[in-house]
Write a protein that binds this DNA or RNA. Sequence first.
DNA 1: GGGTATTTGTCCGTATGTATG
DNA 2: TCATACATACGGACAAATACC
Lengths: 487, 487
Amino acid sequence: MIIGANWHCVYIQFYYFLRGQIGGETVQNLSITLESGGKTPMYEQLYRYFAAEIARGHIRPGEKLPSKRALQEGLGISRSTVETAYGLLAAEGYIEARPRSGYYCGDLVAPASPEPRSRPAPEREPERQPPRGPDFSTASVDVSQFPYATWAKLNKEVVYSSPELLRRGHRQGDLPLRRALARMLGETRGVRCAPEDIVVGAGMEYLTGLILQLLPEATVLGLEDPGYTAMADTALALGRQVRYIPLDEAGMREDELRKSDVNVCYVTPSHQFPMGVTMPASRRSRILRWASEEPDRYVIEDDYDSEFRYVGRPIPSLKSMDDRGRVIYVGTFSRSLAPSIRVAYAVLPGPLLAKYRALSAHRLSTVSRYEQAVLALLMDTGVYGRYLRRLTGLYARRRARLLAALGDIPGIEVSGDGGGMHFLIMSRERTEPELLESALEQGLDLAGLSRYCHRYEPEGGCLVLGYGGVEEAQLSDACERLRRALK
Amino acid sequence: MIIGANWHCVYIQFYYFLRGQIGGETVQNLSITLESGGKTPMYEQLYRYFAAEIARGHIRPGEKLPSKRALQEGLGISRSTVETAYGLLAAEGYIEARPRSGYYCGDLVAPASPEPRSRPAPEREPERQPPRGPDFSTASVDVSQFPYATWAKLNKEVVYSSPELLRRGHRQGDLPLRRALARMLGETRGVRCAPEDIVVGAGMEYLTGLILQLLPEATVLGLEDPGYTAMADTALALGRQVRYIPLDEAGMREDELRKSDVNVCYVTPSHQFPMGVTMPASRRSRILRWASEEPDRYVIEDDYDSEFRYVGRPIPSLKSMDDRGRVIYVGTFSRSLAPSIRVAYAVLPGPLLAKYRALSAHRLSTVSRYEQAVLALLMDTGVYGRYLRRLTGLYARRRARLLAALGDIPGIEVSGDGGGMHFLIMSRERTEPELLESALEQGLDLAGLSRYCHRYEPEGGCLVLGYGGVEEAQLSDACERLRRALK
DNA sequence: GGGTATTTGTCCGTATGTATG
DNA sequence: TCATACATACGGACAAATACC
C-alpha cells in the first residue's frame, strides 16, 4: 500500500446476496475494492470487476446480479455509476437486462468450469461419514421415535404466538420452561426447587463451564476415575485444578475423597459413566455429609441417564436429600430428546445463584427462546413424559435382546446394565486391545474402558457398549456380530 | 434416619407428568418415598399419600392422576399394588375411574384453596415489565418486520427433512450454515474465509468467552473506553487481565495501545459502541500493524452493527485487510434478526482454530441444529439479505426523523450517527444526571454515556440513544418527548 | 380429518409369605 | 408337620379410548 495515496483511496465492499441454491456447490465470495479519486473512474472499475468475474466463471450464466439499488446502497455510490457499468456490460453481452426483474449473467462467455479462487481453502476437516455398521457409541441415542409432527406444530404455534419471543428473554431461561422443569424435577427426581433456582443453558458443557466460573478460582475439582472426560477438559480449559477420585461398586469413594484436597466433586450417581453403577442411598448420604463439613464444599450432581432405568427401584437424587444447599443439580435433554437439542439445566444453591446473577448482569440465556417455548409446551402437554416412557420401553427391549445375546458367552461378564443406554462387557481372558481388534474384524467400532480412565486399571479387557444408537433393523445383525467378536 | 433400618428402606420417587395447563398457576411438585418390608404395606402408603395430597388440595378436582402403568414403572412396583391403592381411593370417592382414559381426582373433598407447601419459594426475582414509554435502549431492535411465516415454514421443512438433524452435528456448527456465512462474509464484509474457519456459537458472550479461553492465560486484553461492558465482565470472569484503552474520533488509539502491555485488543470498528465512530482505514491499518509486530498479538474485531450504515461508504472490515492472520472476526444475528436468536459466529485464524479443535474434541456446537438449518436456508434463499435491506431502510427513516426532531435544539450536538441503531446526544450546558432527570420527567428511561466509561470523562452531559426498539407508532410521540426533555 | 399405533383401565392367573387350624 | 386361607405383590391379555401422524 502506497502511503500518501491512502487519502484518495476508499475501499468499498460489495454488498450483495446471491439467490443461491442450497446444496453442495462451491461457495463464491464476491468482493470489490473501489478507489475513488484515482485515474480509473469508478464505473470502469465496476465494469472490469464484473467482466472479469463473469469471464472466470465465478458468476455463471443465468445467475442474478445484484440490483442497481442494492449495489448503490451497498457500495455507497451513485446509482448512475452502477448504471453506466451495467450498460457497458449489457452492451457487450456479459449480462442482460430483464426489465423490472433484474440483470442476469449472459450465457455466451462462460468457461466450462469456474476458475479456482486464488487463495486455496485451508485443509478441510473430514466431514463425518455415516457409519455403516451398528453404532455402539455411548454418545448416540435413538431418534426414530422423535415427535417430529408435534415439534413442528408447536414450533409454528410458538413463532406465530407473539413478537415478544423475539426480544430479549430472561437470562436464566424463560419462565414457562423453568416452571415446567421445576415441576418435572419435583415429580420425577424429588428435587424441590423453584423456577427461580434454575438456569437453562446451551448444553451440558456450557453449563458446567458456567458453574465452574461461579466457583472460586481456588476450587479443586474431584472427578470420577474412570469418568466423563469432557468434564476434565472443561475444568482444565478454565484453569481449575482437577483430582481423580477412584470408584468402587457404589460409585465415587468417599474415603478417597476425604484423603484428597478436593472441595467440589462431580458425580453421576444415577448411572455412572462409564461404569454404569448406581450410587446407593448410603453412599449418597456419605457424600452429602462430606460436602456439608466445610463451607465451600459442593457436589455437582450430573443426573446422567436417570430417565432410563430398567431394574430395581429409583434412588432419590442427591439434590432431593440435600438440606444444606450443597448440591448443584444438572441435567440435559440431549439424551432424552435428541443430542442436537442443546438445552441443559442446572439447579443452583442460593449463594451460587446470587453470584450468577451478579456475574451475568447483561447476559441472555444461550438457548433460543423459540426452542425454550417449544420445550416448555412439550413438557406441559405431557408429550415429553409419554415420549420418555416410550423410549424407556424401547431401550429396555433393546437391552434385553443384547443381554440375551451375550448371556451364554463364556468368559464374559456384563455389568452396569441397570439403567441408562450403555453397559460394560468384561473379559478376564482377553485384553482390551484384543477385544477391540476382534470387534473391528466384525465391523464393530467399539470403545474400550481405558479411554475414560485416568489412573484406574481394569482387570482384564473392558468394553463400553452404548446401545442408544443401534438401529432397530440392525439389532439382530449387531447381536450376531457381537457374539462372534466376543466368543 | 435410623441406621440399621436403612437396609429395609427403599426410597421411591414418584414418576409422573401432569397433563397440565400452561399458565400462571403455582407449581406443585409431588414426591413420594415408599418403604417396602416395613409394617405398612406399599399400597397403603400409596393410598395415604394420594388421600393426603387430595385432601390438602395439591391435587385438584378433575385433575388426572398418573396411569397405573406410569406409577408401576416409575416407582418400580407392581401394577396390582397401584391397583389396590387406586381401588381404595376410588371406593372412598377421592378419585374416580374413567375406563380406558385414566383416574381423575373427585370433586367432593377439595378445600377452597390449596394448602401451601411446607418449604417456601425463595425470594422471587421480579419479572420484566413491558415498558410503557418509547424504548430507547441500545439493546432493543425492531422485530415488527421479522419474517415469521418464512421462519415457521422453513422450520417445518427442516424438522421433516431428516432425522440426521437430531443427531450430533459438527462442533463448529453445521456445514450449510458455515458455508452460507462464509459466502455472506465474503460478499458483504470482504472476509475471505472458508467454512472450516468459522465457529458458530450461542451468542456473542459465549463466543467471546470461548475465544478468551483459546488465548493464553497470560493474555492482557485491551478494551475500548468507553466500550461494551459485557466484554469486560466475560474477561474478568475468566480471570483474564483487562486494560482500558482510550478512544479518539477514529476509534481505539493506537499510540495508547502501544504504551500499554496489551497483547489482544477488542474493537468495534464499524460502529463503535457506544461512541458510534467508524474507524477509518488508516487507523485500521495501524491497529493491524501493531498486531503483526509480536507473535501472540491478536485483534478481536466485533463487526457490531456493520449491517446498518446510512452515510458514506463501507469501510472494509479489519479481517479483510488482515494478511497476517491476526484478526479474530466475530459477528452475530442478534441485532440483524432478533435478540432471541442466539447465533453468533467467529472466524478464527489458523493457530486458534487448531487450539479450538484440540480443546473441544468432544464438544458439540451450542446452537440447535434446527435453528442452524433454518438460518442457512434463510441466507441461501436470499430472504435474509432482503430482510436486511428492508431493515436498513426502516432504521434509516427512523434515524432521519429523530435527527430532524433534534436538529434545531440549541446546545445539543449529535454524533456517531453514521450507522447502527444508536447515536450520541451531547450537551455542553447540562450534565448527564440533569439530562437523565429531565428525560425521566418526560417518561423516557434513557442511558447516560457514563455507564459505559471506565476512565473516560465526557465533556458535558452525554446520552446514548438507541432507536432500534422504538415502535413506529410511538415515533412522533417519542420525538416530541425528546425535544421537550432536551430543550 | 381419518387411519394407525400407543396408552389405559380392567380382568385374571400366579407367586410368596404369613397366619390359622 | 401339613393343608388352607388370606394378604400382598407381580405381570400378561384384552378392548376401548386416546394420541400421533
